[in-house]
Design a protein around this nucleic acid. Structure first.
Length: 666
DNA sequence: CTTTCAGACCTTTTT
DNA sequence: GGTCTGAAAG
């Protein structure tokens, strides 16, 4: 058989004029952004200015002029965003769009490292640790090092994990970070540094990779292996990055290296919508882009197609009060519209009742539930509202905050699967062993060490000498893992392991195991979609299904549910009507983020992002005089971001309780 | 010595 | 609902 050499249609020489008739569909700036395909391009796109639309046309245009879809890389903030854009591009052109490489930086790093990891001594079968996994590892090492039974208090594992991660993402060192942001932990600095060293070593020996490693290792690969860099850069001839204001220096560096061969990079972002600095994101990345890429063309999209003028008047005012000067005033042709409304409620309960009642009214007026969203700063802010919605049988889904993948029982089941995929995964062994009766922290670590000393993990587990209950538990576990390993599909393995896990579930959660069981079944359902266990596990770590199961029981199957979301998870989305609840000083801005000007500015941008999600109606609500148990203080002032805004821009409203008129009744 | 259980405390935002 | 602590139980 003759060997074949595939000639690929990439590079500018094959470009031909586009047949796509998109000139009519885009305004001048959008058209420029979509059709400028070569060289570095910075698109500054205000909220609702058709940024996604522009990117969609850009992808379609590239393919239309003959670019091989496989040589296009579309980096977005979530995988769903990439999928959505490619779906829309497919409608414009054809299915070739599905061959475009797209996803988050982390998922892209995952793919590249599975392919090229060997070059930096990383086994391609590495397991991705999510944040709780990192915390578990830190916990194990801390106990091992005897750091928790000293007289001085050691920071909690979450804090430790956050410090380690932050140091990398903010491009600083642990000592510097402690000095700046955690001065109260200064006395633990030496221990933290030793722990950090152990943590790095631990991950390496166990073939574990955390979120930060994905980016760091990809950067290292590109920076130090010229051959890999050249191959990747030649493979991805046209690179696009969405939400560039929320990338950090590592990601910027990765983009720079990936584009080394051609400089064909288009980044899109809005400095006024940067809301991820807690993750090391820096909106100055946007400003610095032209320096990293000399000859950058800059295009600004300023016409808003989403919101009515009254909504824009308010959002312009909110961002105008920022100290960092964003020279941005969005305008729109959609002049008519309702003035946004500020609602003061007596109590949290009244706030929830108002939102429910108004939602039902909107629905009567013909606004579908799925086109309404309730947004909030922190995920627990919606707890009371969730109860109220349930009372009115209003179906909803909740996004952001604590996820279903992070619940104990799902993580337990997942740990069993992870052992099958990576028998070196000490974190999962530890978790799985702790579930056995009679096994605590000491025993589980001892057994884990024993297992990892050999190659045949399950055999090692069998040969561990134990007595009574423990011995029995280990035998059963070994047997179950062996049988599960022989199953073909991930779903069969998950189902089998779930059966084994059920008695443990009942024992550990006597009160609510039926509810948790439903979650497990739901999870097993998700695994049906996968043929490869490795792929399943990567996806669960990088792009977990992020809708909670709670509100899925829609009353009317034709009508999608109402959306409850943290503002962070609402990024890039839009709704007919938007409620922003808890606009209360201490909650929004969050009490934890009022210590510096930068933090406060980010909170303000967060409100800006939330308010610019609305197309027609915007309600901002707050309950007055609330005792916050967590903060142990009374919150009684509306958010500083909306205080003193003129009534022309934000109409004020107070709630009157119908029942209070019946005072004579009781 | 290790596990288990009861009670106190705290809860930002996410790949 | 989670984590951490201390004390009882194994």
């Amino acid at each position: 058989m003759t060997k074949q050499y595939v000639l690929r249609n990439t590079g500018p020489t094959t470009l031909r004029p586009s047949k796509l008739d998109y000139r009519k569909e885009l305004n001048e700036a959008q058209y420029q952004a979509a059709s400028t395909v070569e060289g570095p391009l910075l698109i500054i796109a205000g909220a609702g200015t058709g940024k996604t639309r522009t990117l969609v046309y850009r992808v379609a245009h590239l393919i239309d002029i003959g670019v091989d879809p496989r040589s296009i890389l579309l980096l977005t903030f979530t995988r769903r965003a990439a999928e959505e854009m490619l779906r829309r591009a497919s409608v414009l052109i054809d299915n070739r769009c599905s061959q475009v490489a797209g996803g988050t930086f982390h998922s892209f790093a995952n793919l590249v490292l599975r392919e090229f990891g060997r070059r930096i001594n990383l086994s391609p079968s590495f397991t991705i640790m999510d944040r709780p996994d990192s915390e578990d590892a830190i916990q194990v090492l801390r106990t091992e090092m005897g750091l928790n039974n000293k007289d001085k208090r050691f920071p909690r594992k979450q804090t430790v994990a956050e410090i380690f991660s932050m140091a990398l993402n903010k491009q600083t060192t642990v000592p510097n970070l402690i000095e700046q942001d955690y001065p109260h932990l200064y006395e633990s600095l030496d221990d933290l540094l030793r722990l950090y060293e152990r943590y790095v070593e631990y991950k390496t020996t166990k073939t574990l990779v955390d979120y930060d490693d994905l980016l760091t290792k990809l950067k290292d690969l590109l920076a130090t292996h010229e051959e890999a860099r050249r191959r990747l850069s030649q493979r991805y001839q046209f690179i696009m990055v969405d939400e560039y204001q929320d990338t950090n220096h590592l990601q910027a560096r990765i983009v720079r290296l990936l584009a080394a061969e051609h400089d064909n990079v288009a980044v899109v972002g809005d400095d006024a919508q940067s809301i991820y600095s807690f993750r090391g994101a820096n909106f100055r990345n946007i400003m610095d882009f032209p320096e990293a890429f000399p000859g950058t063309q800059i295009i600004k999209l300023e016409e808003n197609y989403r919101s009515t003028q009254p909504i824009l008047n308010l959002t312009n005012e909110i961002i105008q009060r920022a100290h960092e000067g964003y020279d941005k005033r969005l305008h729109t042709e959609k002049r008519e519209g309702e003035t946004p409304i500020l609602v003061q409620a007596e109590s949290e309960q009244m706030q929830s009742r108002f939102v429910c009642q108004k939602i039902l009214e909107l629905r009567e007026e013909g606004v579908p539930l799925w086109d309404i969203a309730v947004l909030f700063r922190s995920s627990f802010h919606s707890f009371d509202l969730e109860l109220e919605l349930a009372r009115h049988n209003i179906p909803f889904i909740k996004r952001g905050g604590f996820q279903f993948m992070e619940t104990t029982h799902i993580k337990d089941l997942l740990a069993h699967l992870r052992i099958l995929a990576n028998p070196q995964d000490a974190i999962s062994w530890n978790r799985v062993l702790l579930l056995l009766e009679g096994v605590g922290a000491q025993a589980s670590q001892k057994i884990t060490r024993w297992i990892l000393q050999g190659n045949q993990a399950v055999e090692r587990l069998r040969s561990f000498e134990a007595k009574g209950k423990i011995a029995h538990g280990l035998k059963t576990l070994a047997q179950v893992l062996q049988v599960a390993a022989e199953a073909q599909r991930p779903a069969e393995q998950a189902e089998y392991l779930m059966q084994y896990y059920l008695p443990i579930l009942k024992r550990n959660h006597p009160d609510d195991h039926p509810k948790r069981f439903k979650d497990l079944e739901h999870f097993v359902g998700i695994t049906e979609r996968y043929r490869s266990l490795e792929r399943l596990l990567s996806d669960m770590a990088l792009e977990p299904p992020n809708d909670s199961v709670a509100g899925v029981l829609a009353v009317d199957p034709d009508e999608g549910p109402l959306v409850l979301s943290t503002i962070h998870s609402a990024k890039g989305l839009e709704w007919h009507s938007v409620f922003i609840i808890w606009a209360l000083e201490g909650r929004f801005p969050s009490f934890y983020n009022i210590n510096s000007e930068e933090e406060l500015e980010e909170e303000r941008r967060l409100l800006y992002v939330a308010a610019t999600r609305a197309k027609e109606n915007l309600f901002i609500t707050y309950p007055i005089r609330i005792f916050d148990r967590g903060l142990r203080m009374v919150l009684s002032r509306p958010s500083q971001f909306i205080e003193g805004i003129s009534e022309d821009l934000l109409e004020q409203m107070t709630l009157v309780d119908e029942e209070s008129n019946w005072g004579w009744e009781s």
